[in-house]
Simulated scan of single mutants.
Amino acid sequence: MGNEFLDRVEDNAAVRTWAEITQREKGDSLAEGYISELWDFTRVSVTQNNLQELKEIWEQWNDEVRQLFYSNYGDLPYLLDMKVDKCLFRALAQFWNPAYSCFTFGRVDLVPTIEKYTALLRCSKIQVDKVYSKAVNAPTFLRRLVSITGMSGQWVTARMKQKRDNKCIHWKNLKDLILTHPDTKKKVDIFALSIYGLVVFPRALGHVDEAVTDLFDRLDKRVTPVSVDNVSYRVFSDNYSPLKEIVATPRRDDISEEKWMAIF
């Protein structure tokens, strides 16, 4: 099985190389000066943030606060109970095409679309006629945190940190705000920001990254988080939640990385 696994990885890398060469000859959107880095084998760290404190906060909220959250941010809290299959993620990494930011299975390229994300989250706050575009003079990390948290610039400055090339704020500071903030709407906003930072787009363990606050700032303006010309989607049913169903569905935990490769 080990040799078959490595063969599949190497074959897929060869297909991606073929795709890049073919597209270069025809002309496409590869960045100027792009250098292909396709490894025959990749190991991925799937270390996760501890979400227990987020879960405890959610469980303590009453129905009124929860409904306020759902109306603004959709079914995001179900992600807190989502079991991550580490073997699946490691296997998926072998099919990732860095040149085009998509998954390449043989000669088929696949990437999740914004329609799928919006249907999955059931986030009615997003409007299909408004799209994400990063402003030339975008607000600074400091100003975005001041706006999201409702705290002073001095409070935010004292808690900002630098992790590698990115600014961030520690989850503990956000947790304290969620527990003590007098404004319920702000509590909900900060909780949603924390899920995006710790679950959906984690970069530095235990911290919420600067880039996440930019996306969150755009969501607050009711736009989709990707640049597209037109987005349309339909919710299957007002009472149906895809994430809720996924969380409730029993998952096998005995599928190895090699087996996932064979399935793909």
Results as ranks from 00 to 15, higher is better:
Q154W: 07
P202M: 10
M261T: 08
T104S: 01
L215N: 02
E4I: 15
P225M: 14
V156F: 01
P250H: 04
I126S: 08
D254V: 11
V226E: 07
Q127A: 00
L177A: 09
I169Q: 00
Y240L: 11
M1H: 09
V235Y: 12
V84K: 05
P250A: 10
D254K: 01
M1N: 10
V46S: 14
V108W: 02
F89T: 15
E64W: 05
L145S: 04
P139E: 11
L205R: 07
L215D: 06
Y73I: 01
Y196T: 11
T224S: 14
R122E: 13
R251N: 00
I190M: 14
W155D: 10
R43S: 14
L142R: 05
N230Q: 10
E56Y: 06
R234S: 11
R16I: 10
K86S: 13
F236I: 08
N230T: 08
K86C: 15
F264S: 08
R122G: 01
A248K: 07
T113C: 02
A31T: 11
D254F: 03
D81G: 08
D165S: 09
I148K: 01
L80F: 09
R203S: 07
Y117C: 12
G153Q: 04
D238G: 11
R143P: 05
E25D: 12
Y233F: 08
L92N: 05
T184Y: 03
M82C: 15
D109S: 12
L205I: 15
V247L: 03
Y73E: 02
K187Y: 09
E4V: 14
W260T: 04
P225F: 12
T42K: 08
T184D: 03
R8V: 15
K55W: 06
L120R: 04
S241F: 01
V9R: 11
G27H: 00
L145N: 04
V226Q: 01
Q67P: 04
V223L: 01
C87K: 11
L76H: 03
L76S: 04
Y132S: 01
G206D: 01
F41E: 09
D75F: 08
W61M: 13
Q67G: 00
I195R: 02
E64H: 05
P98Y: 01
D220P: 03
D81W: 14
L120N: 02
M160G: 10
L205E: 07
D238T: 07
F264Q: 01
K175E: 14
T47G: 06
S232W: 02
T113P: 07
F191E: 06
Y132G: 00
W96P: 06
V128E: 08
R164Q: 07
N97C: 13
R251Q: 06
K172C: 11
Q52N: 12
K185S: 15
A138T: 05
T224R: 06
K187M: 12
A119C: 11
H207C: 14
L205F: 02
T180V: 13
K259R: 09
P112M: 07
C168E: 02
L205S: 06
Q52P: 08
A31E: 04
V231R: 01
Y233E: 03
E64L: 09
L121V: 10
D129F: 12
G2P: 12
K172N: 08
R16D: 13
S71Y: 03
T113E: 03
T17D: 07
S29R: 00
P202S: 08
K161E: 13
E56S: 05
R16Y: 09
S45E: 14
